[in-house]
Computed example of a mutant assay.
Amino acid sequence: MATVTSRDIQEIVLKLSSDKAKAREEGIKLLSTWLEGERSVGFCKYIRQNTAMLKPNEIPHSETWPFLIPLLTKCVSLEISASKRRVPKLIFAKTLRIVVQRAEDAKFSGKGMLLLPVAKLLFNHIWDVLKDVPSFQSEYGIILRHLLALRHYQFHMRKRVYCSLVLLYMEKVETNLSGESSAQLNPKEEVFRCMLTLHSLLENPPGDFPDDLRDDIVKGFVGILSYVRDEGKISRKLIECINTYLLRDGPNLGGQSLEIHDVVKQFLFRCWITTHDRSLKDSLVLYARLQLNLTRGASDGSALLEQLLDVIGKELDQISTSCTNAPWSETTRDDKGGTLTSSQYGLVELAALVFCRACINTLKPPQHEKRARTEHAAVYIKEGLAKGKWLW
């Protein structure tokens, strides 16, 4: 295994710092060779040791990550500027992505948080590239998700950049779902990758969600949901995104949470009983609990409660009749009366919440909606128990 030396690093830095495009590309290729295979371990450990020795206020020297990464972002920007009539070369984005991953990988770099000094610069650079260079979207999406997954890094992102990224990815998802995108890639895979990044953004905001972003997020979800018809990994990830947002910012939404539900409900109640996707079912159960908690005391919450009362009753009946008809179950019940799986436990908790709320409140569905069941919730429970169905 080749051992990296200071001279090797300086050769890379010299080429990357050149004002000539050809030399910079040679530098990128040379750096890439050091990031491949066994050579990568020694290279990254060498850079890590130098980075770890930096004092808090010390200016990073050329053999540290905080020096190399800004140099790489500059190379990427220059490549983009020089590519007005052609697609920028992907090796620039790919190399930056590998460097960021290696710099924060314990296997290669040991001590973490080595990129904190350049985190703000990286987030700014990511936004500048993503908004203008579609061909770099895949690599830069990975970089963004990687940084967001690192503890404390999101707090170094400017709120303006965060808001712009959230809206960008919501727009990308909606555009691809609507069929208006001109992307050459598989549109479903493109949507899913965008959804992954959107989920990471919603899960890791740089503090509280800005007030002026709230309306746009709700409108974004409403727009995206208008194109979701079938169950699958895209719809599952979308419900996860909504759940994450409701968990993070739900108490500040007020009646806007019901704006989301107005477009979710058709998909939710269509798939609830029929889906074979246990993860989707679990996400729908969590969604229902979140919405119930957010609409507590709200005058419009009675419609949601009525809808859930009906569908949960059917679900309990279906599982009780035959566990084989509940494909999202993990195990079958035993002869003594049943052992709850984690998914069934979540359903039973939701059922308890729904029936408790229904017994306390007088259900008053909107006049334009026909009530599916007129009995009081307590009567509904009594009927289920009288039939001897185990989940009841």
Rank of each mutant, 00 (worst) to 15 (best):
N57W: 02
A326Y: 00
P134H: 01
K89F: 00
V99Y: 04
H368R: 08
G338F: 01
L292V: 05
H376A: 03
P210G: 14
S40P: 00
D335V: 15
L305F: 02
Q266V: 14
S257Y: 02
D282L: 11
S329T: 10
G207C: 03
P206G: 07
G179I: 06
I59L: 09
S81R: 15
F136M: 01
L71F: 12
L292P: 09
N204P: 04
L286D: 02
E171A: 08
L16S: 06
K219L: 14
K159N: 08
L144V: 04
I80L: 09
H199D: 07
D105A: 12
N50T: 05
F136N: 04
K94S: 13
M113F: 14
G223W: 01
V4Y: 03
Y46D: 03
R85S: 01
D335T: 15
G27E: 09
S164N: 13
H61F: 04
I234L: 11
Y380R: 15
L122N: 13
T324F: 11
R145D: 03
F192G: 03
K281F: 06
G338T: 08
L35C: 10
A298Q: 14
L308N: 08
T321F: 06
E58T: 11
L202C: 12
D208N: 12
A386V: 05
D208F: 01
P210Y: 10
L280E: 11
L347E: 07
E190A: 10
S77P: 03
P187N: 07
Y227S: 15
I234D: 09
S181P: 09
L130D: 01
V13I: 13
L305Q: 04
Y380D: 11
W65P: 13
G301D: 03
A23C: 02
I126C: 06
F209Q: 06
G250E: 10
G254K: 12
Y380T: 13
E171P: 01
Y345W: 13
P88F: 00
L35N: 03
Q367T: 15
D277A: 05
S343M: 06
E174G: 11
E38Y: 11
F155I: 04
F269M: 06
L165C: 12
L268N: 09
D282P: 07
